[in-house]
Design a protein around this nucleic acid. Structure first.
Length: 590
RNA sequence: GACCCCGUAGCUCAGUUGGAUAGAGCAGCCGCCUUCUAAGCGGCAGGUCGCAGGUUCGAAUCCUGCCGGGGUCGCCA
């Protein structure tokens, strides 16, 4: 039950009535106004700007917004759920709801339990692609942010009602993975007892390839030694990529991140009857005049020293909002990454995803326009792509940046961070920030078990709720404190302003879910939970000064039941929100 | 030179898709442990929302131009 959506509909009906009476023109979009919690709680429970939005259209019949507001208020006064409706300020309508409404909301929340706030299944298929880190080494903290963001976003959209599919694009084609194979081959020779000395420039030096080398030695023995690269590259590459993906998937699992689909870039390059999927898609575009041979103007500013003006295969992305046309083939004749990415997104469309979300690092920002252009071209504008960029993460310890260098051996992997600070802290901190803002990740602060740390603040609120139930169970031994039992409590007994504030926040949860999902901003959930936790801690502390406000009241079983119902729902919302973020909701924290 | 993000309290950041007197947390100052967990709570103080225009009933939010910080700019992915 979403009271904001409910009243949006009711006020829409009132406006329709005004239209029917001829005092508003027909054909207006009657959903353009908003119904929100007012910024100032003293204004009531709901506020709408409807009168101001339609004031212009109402001109001859209503001189100003306040007159239209008065008309709407008059109609709303007949609504039994409305205790008071009045025009205020420039034309806002402030609505105070009948206490019964909140009783109903709370009861509905308790009955729904973990499903409270869940959106109706829309059946809309959404593909969320995230992480997609190269299988050439361990992930760093920046990958972690994308992983956590993408995962939480997927959870959020699914909870809001979408049919979500989580996908990882494995970049197992191109020059990088050949370098990987050569690096692994060196480790293979090492595993067979050879002294390989320093790793040559241009190869991956990390120790993480040693196990891969050993695995190769185990499988192939000495049979590859001395053979030309052409004989072993393919096999070594495949084996090593597999090893890297096992490692990456383990790191993701440690972060509680999972994908349903791992899509291989190489599969797009593989020829069937002499034709690859990329060939097919590009020929398709060529037939429509969107792929052509031509020259590109050199980039403005400083010219790359190896710039050569040459004719190349280009995609006409300028026809779809990009700044320049984009190359599809490298100078060696191989396809560019963009070319395979076109075929990849086409594959998503062919698999039925007309809504696609890609989560990328901010360093790929310059790539967004061309990808959007490609999706438009390849789907005839029927599919949509929304690229969410995650800004860089600066790893910090006690306020000092942790300088990272692969060579210097001071490279900090994602796994090391998760092992050090834990999965809950890692996830929450990365989600407690807008995705497009830079993030300082302070290794010291996130484990500091203090008020400085929002993770513990929110988790503790949940634990505190559970703790209250443990206490209640000893005071009212044998009482039925289950959800269904509490839903039958006399909730009208909740009268204290602190309690009502908590109910109001609980009532906002469905709206928060909807808004966060629509904006595709999981951080809103993190901030909402923080607010909810704050209100809860605050009210709990009032029980210090005023023992009669404590949730467990030995004098009155009825009052206690009502308050426990509130705590039940509150705890449930905290657990629900935390599970969307992929963060644990502990029952106690001692 | 072009494009994309960011600029809000001393610091770190929110700001309900254009609403009412711009909010939290740290840091500072003043209070609160006989409690269902002090990993907490209450209070005080702190602001030309980078600058200048524009759009309208109304702008931190939208548009334009500057200033400052970051990122990117065929042949990496």
């Amino acid at each position: 039950m979403n009271i904001f959506a409910e009243f949006q509909a009711r006020i829409g009906a009132v406006l329709q009535g005004v239209v029917d009476s001829g005092r508003l023109p027909a054909g207006l979009d009657l959903r353009r106004f908003t119904v929100e919690p007012p910024r100032d709680a003293s204004h009531g429970d709901l506020a709408t700007n409807a009168a101001m939005v339609y004031a212009k259209d109402a001109k001859p019949h209503f001189a100003n917004p306040r007159q239209l507001a008065a008309e709407i208020c008059f109609a709303l006064a007949n609504d039994p759920d409305v205790a008071q409706a009045e025009a205020a300020g420039p034309g806002f309508i402030n609505i105070r709801l009948a206490p019964k409404v909140f009783v109903d909301v709370l009861r509905a929340a308790i009955v729904a339990g973990a499903d409270y706030g869940r959106g109706a299944a829309s059946g809309e298929k959404v593909n969320v692609e995230y992480v997609s880190a190269n299988p050439t080494g361990p992930m760093h903290v920046g990958h972690g942010r994308g992983a956590v963001f993408g995962d939480a976003l997927a959870n959020l959209l699914a909870f809001a009602g979408a049919d979500v599919s989580r996908e990882y694009y494995v970049n197992d084609a191109g020059a990088q993975v050949d370098v990987l194979a050569r690096s692994a081959f060196l480790r293979y020779r090492e595993a067979l007892g050879e002294d390989i000395g320093a790793i040559p420039e241009g190869l991956y030096p990390g120790d993480y390839l040693k196990p891969a080398g050993e695995a190769l030695a185990k499988q192939f023995g000495a049979s590859l030694i001395g053979k030309p690269e052409g004989d072993w590259l393919e096999a070594v590459r495949a084996k090593t990529i597999d090893a890297m993906m096992v490692m990456i998937r383990a790191d993701l699992a440690a972060l509680n991140v999972e994908h349903e689909t791992f899509f291989s870039e190489r599969s797009l390059h593989e020829k069937k009857n002499g034709v690859s999927e990329i060939d097919r898609q590009l020929e398709d575009l060529r037939a429509r005049g969107l792929v052509y041979e031509g020259r590109l103007p050199p980039p403005k500013g400083q010219l790359p020293d190896d710039w050569e003006d040459r004719e190349q295969t280009l995609f006409r992305s300028t026809g779809f909002g990009d700044d320049v046309d984009r190359p599809l083939k490298k100078s060696d004749g191989a396809y560019t990454y963009f070319a395979s990415d076109i075929a990849y997104h086409k594959s998503k469309i062919d698999r039925g995803f007309l809504k696609m979300i890609d989560v990328w690092g901010a360093d790929h920002g310059g790539y967004v326009k061309r990808m959007n252009a490609a999706v438009k071209a390849v789907s005839d504008g029927k599919a949509s792509l929304d690229v969410r960029l995650c800004q860089l993460v600066r790893l910090v310890r006690d306020g000092v940046e942790v300088k990272m260098s692969k060579r210097g051996g001071t490279f900090v992997t994602l796994r090391e961070v998760v092992d050090e600070v834990g999965l809950d802290a890692t996830r929450f901190m990365m989600l407690f920030r807008k995705n497009d803002a830079m993030l300082d990740f302070d290794l010291a602060k996130v484990i500091e078990q203090s008020k400085d740390n929002p993770v513990f603040y929110v988790q503790y609120a949940h634990a505190r709720g559970k703790s209250i139930f443990r206490q209640a169970q000893t005071v009212f031994a044998g009482a039925d404190l289950s959800g269904p039992a509490l839903a039958r409590a006399d909730l009208a007994l909740l009268e204290d302003p602190g309690e009502l504030e908590l109910v109001r926040l609980i009532a906002q949860y469905p709206r928060q879910i909807e808004a966060a999902a629509q904006a595709r901003e999981p951080h809103r959930i993190a901030f909402f939970l923080h607010d909810l936790a704050s209100a809860f801690h605050s009210h709990w502390n009032r029980g210090k000064e005023s023992p009669q406000l404590r949730f467990v009241n030995e004098e009155s079983g009825d009052l206690s039941r009502a308050r426990l119902a509130l705590v039940f729902s509150l705890t449930s919302v905290l657990a629900s929100g935390l599970s969307i973020l992929g963060v644990g909701a502990p029952s106690e924290m001692r």
